[in-house]
Amino acid sequence: MTPIQTIAVGFDGSPDAQAAARCALELANQLGADLVFVHATGLLEHIDEPQAVLDLEETVWVLTSETGFDPGRARWHVDNGDPCSVLLRAGEPPISADLVVVGSRGQGNHVGLPLGSTSHELAEHTTIPIVIVPNGETGNR
C-alpha cells in the first residue's frame, strides 16, 4: 500500500463534513501527512455570493487551529463539479491524495436512500482508499 502522504477531505460546511474534517486532521497528525480541504463548486455557487466559499475556507482554518494541526501542511482547494466527481479526481494532480475522507452525508444527501449520496458513490467508484465518517446525529438516525 502506498504510504499516506496526502489526505483529501471533502468539505461543504455541513455537520458531517465538519466531523470528517476533524477526523482527517487527527489522521494527518498521526500519520504526518499533508491535508487538503476540497470544496466542490456546483452550478448554483456560480450565481451565489462568493462570500459563501470564503466563509467555508474560514471555517476550515478555525478547525485546523482548534486541533493544533500545522497550518503549513494544510491547504484549501476549490474545484468545479459535483462533490462526487471532484472527490473522485482527488487522487490525480493537483491534489494527488493517497486517502479521501468524507462525511457520511453532505448537504445534498437524502435520508434513507443511496441516490445522491456522495459517500456511497465514492465508495463504489474510488481508486484510492476512502474513510467515511459518521457524526453522532447521523448515527442515531
Partner: peptide, 21 residues
C-alpha cells in the same frame, strides 16, 4: 438500478440529490 433509485426517491417525495439538483 439508477432508474429504480430515482423512481423510489420521487415516490418518497423527493428532495436534494446534490447541492444543485
Amino acid at each position: 438500478s439508477y432508474l429504480d433509485e430515482l423512481t423510489a426517491f420521487c415516490e418518497a417525495g423527493g428532495g436534494d440529490i446534490d447541492p444543485d439538483t
